[in-house]
Protein backbone atom coordinates (compact mmCIF):
# COMPACT_ATOMS: atom_id res chain seq x y z
CA UNK A 1 0.00 0.00 0.00
CA UNK A 2 1.59 3.23 -1.10
CA UNK A 3 0.91 5.78 1.54
CA UNK A 4 1.74 8.90 -0.35
CA UNK A 5 2.45 11.12 2.58
CA UNK A 6 2.42 14.76 1.60
CA UNK A 7 3.71 16.81 4.49
CA UNK A 8 4.11 20.53 4.37
CA UNK A 9 6.72 20.77 1.74
CA UNK A 10 8.81 23.51 0.39
CA UNK A 11 9.67 22.16 -3.02
CA UNK A 12 11.71 24.64 -4.88
CA UNK A 13 12.27 22.21 -7.59
CA UNK A 14 13.36 23.92 -10.69
CA UNK A 15 12.36 21.28 -13.19
CA UNK A 16 15.13 21.97 -15.61
CA UNK A 17 17.68 23.26 -13.21
CA UNK A 18 18.41 20.06 -11.39
CA UNK A 19 21.09 20.56 -8.73
CA UNK A 20 24.47 19.36 -9.90
CA UNK A 21 26.35 17.73 -7.12
CA UNK A 22 29.13 15.49 -8.26
CA UNK A 23 31.92 15.76 -5.80
CA UNK A 24 34.88 13.63 -4.94
CA UNK A 25 36.18 13.38 -1.43
CA UNK A 26 39.48 11.78 -2.42
CA UNK A 27 41.69 11.25 -5.41
CA UNK A 28 39.27 8.70 -6.80
CA UNK A 29 37.94 9.15 -10.30
CA UNK A 30 34.66 10.93 -10.60
CA UNK A 31 32.33 12.26 -13.23
CA UNK A 32 32.61 15.79 -14.47
CA UNK A 33 32.17 18.53 -11.96
CA UNK A 34 28.63 19.80 -12.11
CA UNK A 35 27.32 17.27 -14.64
CA UNK A 36 23.90 15.74 -14.92
CA UNK A 37 23.35 12.46 -16.68
CA UNK A 38 20.82 13.66 -19.24
CA UNK A 39 20.67 15.86 -22.29
CA UNK A 40 17.14 17.00 -22.96
CA UNK A 41 15.20 18.64 -25.75
CA UNK A 42 15.43 22.43 -26.03
CA UNK A 43 13.06 24.08 -23.64
CA UNK A 44 11.40 27.42 -23.06
CA UNK A 45 13.35 29.98 -21.00
CA UNK A 46 11.16 29.62 -17.96
CA UNK A 47 11.50 27.53 -14.82
CA UNK A 48 8.47 26.25 -12.97
CA UNK A 49 8.53 25.10 -9.38
CA UNK A 50 5.77 24.55 -6.86
CA UNK A 51 4.83 24.22 -3.22
CA UNK A 52 2.02 21.89 -2.20
CA UNK A 53 0.38 22.58 1.14
CA UNK A 54 -0.67 19.08 2.10
CA UNK A 55 -1.68 16.54 3.25
CA UNK A 56 -4.00 15.70 0.40
CA UNK A 57 -7.23 13.99 1.37
CA UNK A 58 -10.42 13.41 -0.63
CA UNK A 59 -12.88 16.28 -0.50
CA UNK A 60 -10.37 18.56 1.17
CA UNK A 61 -9.15 21.60 -0.71
CA UNK A 62 -5.40 22.18 -0.83
CA UNK A 63 -3.38 25.03 -2.24
CA UNK A 64 -0.59 24.64 -4.74
CA UNK A 65 1.66 27.65 -5.15
CA UNK A 66 3.31 27.85 -8.54
CA UNK A 67 6.50 29.85 -9.02
CA UNK A 68 7.32 30.87 -12.56
CA UNK A 69 10.77 32.30 -13.14
CA UNK A 70 11.53 33.84 -16.50
CA UNK A 71 14.99 33.48 -18.01
CA UNK A 72 14.16 35.94 -20.76
CA UNK A 73 11.59 38.72 -21.24
CA UNK A 74 8.34 36.89 -21.97
CA UNK A 75 5.13 38.53 -23.22
CA UNK A 76 1.58 37.26 -23.14
CA UNK A 77 2.24 34.65 -20.52
CA UNK A 78 -0.73 32.33 -20.15
CA UNK A 79 -1.18 29.43 -17.76
CA UNK A 80 -3.76 26.81 -18.62
CA UNK A 81 -4.64 24.31 -15.96
CA UNK A 82 -6.02 20.82 -16.40
CA UNK A 83 -6.64 18.22 -13.74
CA UNK A 84 -6.53 14.50 -14.25
CA UNK A 85 -9.62 12.46 -13.59
CA UNK A 86 -10.38 12.39 -9.89
CA UNK A 87 -9.02 15.86 -9.21
CA UNK A 88 -10.96 19.12 -9.36
CA UNK A 89 -9.59 22.60 -9.79
CA UNK A 90 -11.54 24.71 -7.33
CA UNK A 91 -9.83 28.01 -8.07
CA UNK A 92 -11.91 30.54 -9.94
CA UNK A 93 -10.09 30.26 -13.20
CA UNK A 94 -8.51 27.51 -15.26
CA UNK A 95 -6.63 30.06 -17.30
CA UNK A 96 -4.39 32.70 -15.78
CA UNK A 97 -3.02 35.47 -17.93
CA UNK A 98 0.03 37.57 -17.14
CA UNK A 99 0.87 40.40 -19.47
CA UNK A 100 4.62 40.17 -19.19
CA UNK A 101 7.33 38.61 -17.12
CA UNK A 102 10.75 40.22 -17.22
CA UNK A 103 13.96 38.25 -17.31
CA UNK A 104 15.01 36.95 -13.88
CA UNK A 105 11.68 37.87 -12.33
CA UNK A 106 9.34 35.38 -10.69
CA UNK A 107 5.56 35.28 -10.75
CA UNK A 108 3.56 33.45 -8.11
CA UNK A 109 0.21 31.82 -8.74
CA UNK A 110 -1.93 30.06 -6.15
CA UNK A 111 -4.22 27.30 -7.30
CA UNK A 112 -6.72 25.36 -5.23
CA UNK A 113 -7.46 21.75 -5.99
CA UNK A 114 -9.53 19.03 -4.40
CA UNK A 115 -9.09 15.32 -4.79
CA UNK A 116 -12.43 13.63 -5.38
CA UNK A 117 -11.14 10.21 -4.44
CA UNK A 118 -8.08 8.43 -3.17
CA UNK A 119 -5.45 8.13 -5.82
CA UNK A 120 -2.49 9.53 -7.69
CA UNK A 121 -3.74 12.61 -9.47
CA UNK A 122 -2.02 15.15 -11.64
CA UNK A 123 -2.40 18.87 -12.04
CA UNK A 124 -1.21 19.64 -15.55
CA UNK A 125 0.04 23.10 -16.31
CA UNK A 126 0.57 24.36 -19.82
CA UNK A 127 2.41 27.64 -20.01
CA UNK A 128 2.70 29.62 -23.22
CA UNK A 129 4.17 32.99 -24.00
CA UNK A 130 5.90 34.97 -26.67
CA UNK A 131 9.46 36.11 -27.15
CA UNK A 132 9.94 38.55 -30.01
CA UNK A 133 6.55 37.44 -31.26
CA UNK A 134 7.53 33.78 -31.33
CA UNK A 135 5.62 31.26 -29.24
CA UNK A 136 7.33 29.46 -26.41
CA UNK A 137 5.75 26.81 -24.25
CA UNK A 138 6.32 24.52 -21.32
CA UNK A 139 4.17 21.79 -19.84
CA UNK A 140 4.52 20.15 -16.46
CA UNK A 141 2.53 17.65 -14.44
CA UNK A 142 2.42 18.16 -10.68
CA UNK A 143 1.65 15.01 -8.70
CA UNK A 144 -1.19 15.34 -6.20
CA UNK A 145 -1.41 12.03 -4.37
CA UNK A 146 -3.74 11.43 -1.47
CA UNK A 147 -2.35 10.07 1.75
CA UNK A 148 -4.19 6.75 1.36
CA UNK A 149 -3.64 6.39 -2.37
CA UNK A 150 -3.42 2.75 -3.41
CA UNK A 151 -0.39 1.43 -5.20
CA UNK A 152 -0.11 2.92 -8.63
CA UNK A 153 -1.27 0.65 -11.45
CA UNK A 154 -0.59 1.99 -14.87
CA UNK A 155 -2.10 0.81 -18.07
CA UNK A 156 0.01 0.84 -21.15
CA UNK A 157 -1.00 1.15 -24.76
CA UNK A 158 -1.79 -2.52 -25.31
CA UNK A 159 -1.75 -5.95 -23.65
CA UNK A 160 1.42 -7.06 -21.93
CA UNK A 161 2.51 -10.65 -22.39
CA UNK A 162 5.63 -12.55 -23.45
CA UNK A 163 6.76 -13.78 -26.83
CA UNK A 164 7.97 -17.27 -27.70
CA UNK A 165 11.41 -16.42 -26.29
CA UNK A 166 9.96 -15.26 -23.02
CA UNK A 167 10.64 -11.60 -23.74
CA UNK A 168 8.11 -9.05 -22.63
CA UNK A 169 5.99 -7.54 -25.38
CA UNK A 170 3.02 -5.19 -25.40
CA UNK A 171 0.54 -6.16 -28.12
CA UNK A 172 -1.43 -3.48 -29.93
CA UNK A 173 -4.17 -4.25 -32.45
CA UNK A 174 -3.54 -3.54 -36.12
CA UNK A 175 -6.12 -1.88 -38.29
CA UNK A 176 -6.80 -4.18 -41.22
CA UNK A 177 -8.31 -3.42 -44.57
CA UNK A 178 -12.01 -3.67 -44.25
CA UNK A 179 -11.92 -2.47 -40.61
Amino acid sequence: MNKGYIKRLLLFISIFAIPLVVLSCSDSLNTQAGSTDVSSKPTAPVSISYQLAGPVKPDKEVTITIYIKARADIDDLLLRLKASEGLDITSEKNEIYMDQLKRNSTATVKIKVMALKEGHHLLKIILTGKINGNTIGRAIAIPVSTTEAPERVQKGAGTVTTDSEGKRIIIMPAQEEGD
Binding site: G156, V160, K167, R168, I169, I170, M172, P173, A174, E176
Partner: peptide, 15 residues
Amino acid sequence: IDNTQGRALYVMDSE
Protein backbone atom coordinates in the same frame (compact mmCIF):
# COMPACT_ATOMS: atom_id res chain seq x y z
CA ILE B 1 9.67 -0.12 -25.49
CA ASP B 2 7.33 0.90 -22.71
CA ASN B 3 9.29 1.90 -19.64
CA THR B 4 6.13 1.73 -17.49
CA GLN B 5 5.25 -1.85 -18.47
CA GLY B 6 8.45 -3.64 -17.57
CA ARG B 7 10.25 -2.42 -20.69
CA ALA B 8 7.95 -4.42 -22.94
CA LEU B 9 8.63 -4.14 -26.67
CA TYR B 10 5.75 -2.65 -28.66
CA VAL B 11 4.32 -4.99 -31.30
CA MET B 12 1.28 -4.69 -33.55
CA ASP B 13 -0.65 -7.89 -34.26
CA SER B 14 -3.17 -8.73 -36.94
CA GLU B 15 -6.21 -10.82 -36.18
